[in-house]
Amino acid sequence: MAQQDLDPELMWINAVNTVNKIALKTWVKTTGINLVQVNGQRKYGGPPPGWVGEGPGCGSEVFIGKLPQDMYEDKLIPLFQSIGKLYEFRLMMTFSGLNRGFAYARYMNRRSATAAITALNGHEIQKGSRIVVCKSTEKCELSLDGLPCLLEQEQLKLLLQSMTTGLVELSLHPSPAKKIELMAVVKYSSHRAAAMAKKKLVEDTQLLCGHPLTVDWLKCDLKQKLCNPSAHALDSRWQINPQPSLCETTASLQCDLLLGAVATLNTLCQRMKFGKPVFLTKFLNLSSCGWLRFWYQVVIPGYVVPFSGYEWFIGENLPVEEKHEKAKEVVALKILTALGYTIG
């Protein structure tokens, strides 16, 4: 659902819970409060005027459960504001306009959140209905499953830093579900940063040039398995070093190199179903000793990021076409070496 300001004249189009919807409409007009509908939740607040930097830190948000589904912000926000100033309030909504039975209240500081738990947990919000108020579990870790096994940790880190904010830690592991692929565990500085990253990564289908990727919150059981040194059943299938999974043997790769580095790289990409590499080369200058310096970029459709940089070779007297072919060989050999192969 697209983000939009809550317009009572447009939102209340059905007859479900009409009385309470009218009460909310009146409250919104009277208080001038702004509510925003965003992807299944209705939000109040955010950074107040004059607020600088990140939002309130860990421990400042509380989870509110067992809410009557016909209850809205006109009853809930004043109640939780009576404990301390709210930074944000989020009520989870159904398509019918009822709430989903839970909400989140973020205070300006941890002290107010603790006070809200003490004062309101078990509070009888209406006759026969007692709510649950407890510390919100603020997840900060994502799992990215289905990454290409050629992927290097530093390449993924640079890519994620360019797309998201608040990245703290990143590690690569064999995928628990997908053969010869990788899973990344990515930790962010806050739940909000992680949630925004998750949304971005789910929506951006170009992250891996169309390569299917599963993005989810890191499950507790999987985290425990990864943290347990004795639980390495995943590692018995193959090592993180992709060499055994990308070709039958190192010897067969060395034999392939007799055909040329470009042909070998093409074969490797074909085996891994990555698509044919596309080479771009541009010559820059010639040294006094006859060395040609050139810029290159190699795009492999199924790989996470392109390879690029600068290289040299001796070829002053070669025709232009042969110079480019020689440059491609130099670059292909460099890429194969970077992927962990010993070229003999």
Score class of each variant (00 low, 15 high):
1 M>E: 08
6 L>T: 04
7 D>N: 14
8 P>S: 01
11 M>G: 00
22 I>H: 11
23 A>E: 14
34 N>A: 07
35 L>E: 00
35 L>F: 09
36 V>S: 03
41 Q>F: 13
44 Y>T: 00
45 G>W: 05
45 G>F: 04
47 P>S: 13
71 M>F: 08
73 E>V: 02
75 K>G: 00
79 L>I: 02
84 G>I: 07
87 Y>L: 02
93 M>K: 05
96 S>L: 11
102 F>Q: 06
103 A>E: 03
108 M>Q: 09
108 M>I: 12
110 R>W: 09
113 A>L: 01
118 T>R: 14
125 I>L: 09
126 Q>Y: 06
132 V>N: 10
140 C>F: 01
145 D>P: 03
147 L>W: 01
148 P>H: 07
148 P>V: 05
149 C>A: 12
156 L>A: 00
165 T>C: 04
165 T>W: 01
167 L>N: 02
175 S>P: 04
177 A>R: 15
181 E>N: 10
191 H>P: 00
197 A>E: 01
197 A>V: 11
204 D>R: 15
205 T>Q: 15
206 Q>Y: 11
213 L>Y: 06
214 T>Y: 09
222 L>Y: 14
224 Q>M: 07
228 N>H: 04
230 S>K: 14
236 S>Q: 15
241 N>Q: 08
252 S>A: 12
261 A>R: 04
265 L>I: 08
266 N>S: 01
269 C>T: 10
272 M>I: 10
281 T>N: 08
288 S>C: 10
289 C>F: 11
290 G>Y: 11
292 L>G: 00
296 Y>Q: 01
297 Q>A: 10
299 V>E: 12
303 Y>E: 14
309 G>F: 09
310 Y>S: 13
325 E>I: 04
327 A>E: 02
335 I>S: 08
337 T>D: 13
